[in-house]
Design a protein around this nucleic acid. Structure first.
Lengths: 185, 185
DNA sequence: TCGCACATGTAACGCGTTACATGATTAC
DNA sequence: GTAATCATGTAACGCGTTACATGTGCGA
């Protein structure tokens, strides 16, 4: 397993929570890690097959709704130790790309109003993300009272909340600045 | 030009500031957009050649240190209108990936101390980034007093600062939480 | 003399998304 | 009847990084 490919670790981590099918892994990710980690079908299924071949996960085919086949994967001892090995290593920082910021950086090429509108739209997106995060937080506290995962899941949600709050504060001051620039044009 | 490929717009935006060579574009990016936008050699030079073929930029070969050839690119009228067309469109939000967060989400699989160390290392990184941003801010205020770009450049730096501050605040509370968990293990 | 800064470019590889293929059941 | 959900998987394509190739001049 190549160290650079984090998809495999994301999957192992999910299966360390509980055995799941590929489909369920994606559902779970959408409700939990979505804000800092997402995988697409085209990554997930081949990765599961590869992990199986390497003996890091195993599966049992079960029948599902409409006698469709469903493969419930389970992490193996070998997979678990591989996961832990990765968890103790320092994370590489990866570069982030924000098209929104890039446009603002070049903002002087167009009217202030254009940029004003962009920031307002951005603020709206952040705001709804913040609402979603607060909802999720309530839910996971209720549903995972005695789980060993709870403190870590809370921390990762709080991370998103703190960043969103910082962004919101920035939006407000940027909107004020652009408002003034607009009236001077 | 395909809309999905933002590299081309990043280059056009840079050349709208002033004519530059490929090498200078990278230098400039490293000092300015690095935190939200970076390009590598393997992207930059082919993109410049393509933009030239499409008539969005033009260049003049000049001699440089050690009679090495240097191509100074300039944005054309056509390129400028293409840039503006992109600037008025709403930015697509792109998914972010944070290996650090992914590890923390799965943190329950290892000792609290491991996660504690990760957060501390993370805090250190954020802190030094924040220092760098504050330095840069001072510098660009001094060097671009009368530039039409200044307000936008300030806004994009402040964005980075606000996020970094949010992250720092999170680090402090996470460190406190993990400290308690450590002592209970 | 060794390595760094300047300077442009190509090739190889892997990552990641999107669309496609298949198909049953359930809800509107 | 039409769309969504469950469910797995493949193929094609483009994005992005890394390493390589080439070469000069300058400073430690």
């Amino acid at each position: 397993m190549k160290k650079s490919n984090k998809t495999h670790y994301a999957i192992l981590g999910m299966l360390a929570i509980e055995p799941m099918s590929g489909y369920e892994i994606r559902q779970t990710m959408r409700q939990s890690t979505e804000n800092f980690w997402a995988e697409s079908d085209g990554q997930l299924y081949p990765a599961l097959a590869k992990l199986n071949k390497q003996g890091l996960v195993s599966y049992k085919a079960v029948e599902s709704a409409g006698n469709r086949e469903k493969k419930v994967y389970r992490i193996t001892t070998k997979g678990s130790s591989e996961l832990k090995k990765w968890l103790v290593e320092q994370a590489e920082k990866q570069s982030v790309r924000s098209e929104f910021m890039l446009k603002l950086f070049f903002g002087a090429n167009v009217a202030a109003e254009i940029n004003f509108d962009h920031v307002q739209a951005h603020r709206y997106q952040i705001k709804s993300m913040l609402n979603r995060l607060n909802e999720t937080k309530k839910k996971i506290v209720q549903e995972n009272q005695d789980s060993k995962h709870l403190p870590y899941w809370l921390m990762s949600i709080d991370y998103g909340i703190k960043i969103a709050q910082g962004k919101l504060a920035w939006c407000d001051s940027a909107i004020a600045t652009l408002e003034k620039m607009k009236s001077k044009e």
